[in-house]
Amino acid sequence: MGQDKIATAIAAAREYLTANPEEARYRDSAATAVVENGLRINITGVDGSSTVTDMVAGVGGGGTAPSPGWLFRAAYASCVATLIAMRAAESGITLDRLEVTVDSESDDRGILGIAADIPAGPIRAGVAVRAAAAGVDAETLRGIISWGVAHCPVDDAVRRAVPVELRVDIG
């Protein structure tokens, strides 16, 4: 989809949701994970989309697919890139280059339950953005990037404590 179509779609969505705020909030589509074999997991969505994860051999996986942690970083990078591209399109700016890299640092003692004071998730995460647009000054690009990061749902979920409800069905 071209820049103009993206900008037009965003403007229409913004106008509609401003006029109909009760339709802005909804339950996101679920992802369902099912163990295929060992630590290889098949994840499907209600729309038929799917992906697979696996863990490394060091913890009993087969190493046949990306780990859930890598998919998290991929989702984070993809989300940031998407929101930056959306903001650039809205601003009438064509990006010649946009690359977003998300990395993190973890301590496996947390995921393995070795030390109660070490979190199971990442200890820190980093987002690196490389962007270029002919004729656009660095300050404008930084503003678009900052807006994109600030409005990325995955970045928001990382930075803000999100209430999680655990429902368990045995049997």
Rank of each mutant, 00 (worst) to 15 (best):
T51G: 08
V80Q: 10
T44P: 07
A74R: 03
Y16R: 01
S91C: 10
A116L: 03
L71Q: 09
A9I: 02
V34T: 15
C79G: 06
E15S: 15
V52L: 13
G38Q: 06
G48Y: 03
G45E: 03
A88G: 02
E105H: 04
A24N: 08
S91T: 14
R87M: 00
T101F: 00
A9D: 15
Y76A: 11
A115R: 11
A33M: 11
G63Y: 14
A30P: 08
D28T: 04
E36W: 00
V34E: 15
A24V: 15
A11W: 03
N42G: 04
A9W: 12
T44V: 15
S49D: 09
A11K: 14
G48N: 12
L95E: 00
Y26S: 10
A31I: 07
T44S: 12
A89N: 05
W70A: 10
A65H: 07
R109V: 08
A85V: 02
A74I: 04
A57P: 09
R97H: 13
G60S: 15
L71E: 04
S78W: 10
D54L: 13
I6T: 07
V56T: 07
L17W: 09
Y26I: 08
A7S: 08
M55K: 00
L112C: 00
A74D: 01
Y26N: 06
I43D: 14
V80L: 06
D103P: 04
S49G: 09
V56I: 07
R27Q: 15
A89G: 07
A7P: 11
L71H: 13
R73D: 14
V56G: 13
Y76K: 06
V56C: 07
G45K: 01
S106T: 10
T18L: 13
G62V: 03
E36K: 12
G113H: 06
T64H: 08
E90R: 04
T53W: 02
L83T: 07
T82L: 13
P66C: 10
F72E: 00
A115N: 10
I6N: 01
P119T: 04
V80N: 01
Y76M: 14
L98I: 04
A12H: 12
